[in-house]
């Protein structure tokens, strides 16, 4: 059981987390945040292992990981 929480307002849509996720369960949202970026969002959350690679690569410290 693992979960991530993305702070959409901190996200600048750089996509580094997408590349880091070994399960490929991160995608860019179609919505815009207040800064005008498409924030990252998780799909298929049940596949998340809580490896935290996404959070580690996030340059804006926008991802929290729970396990």
């Amino acid at each position: 059981m693992a979960k991530i929480v993305i702070d959409e307002e901190r996200c600048k849509g750089c996509e580094l987390c997408l590349a880091a996720c070994p399960k490929h369960i991160l995608v860019m949202s179609e919505n815009f945040n207040k800064k005008g970026y498409h924030p990252a969002k998780q799909i298929n959350p049940e596949e998340c292992t809580g490896c935290a690679f996404c959070a580690m690569t996030c340059p804006d410290v926008a991802i929290e990981v729970f396990k």
Binding site: M1, A2, K3, E9, R10, G50, A52, A55, M56, P59, D60, V61, I63, E64, V65, F66, K67
Partner: peptide, 16 residues
Amino acid sequence: MKKVFGRPESLTEVPF
């Protein structure tokens, strides 16, 4: 569930 990764205390809340 426990938080295993979050914002460190030595960073402020100010967005980069």
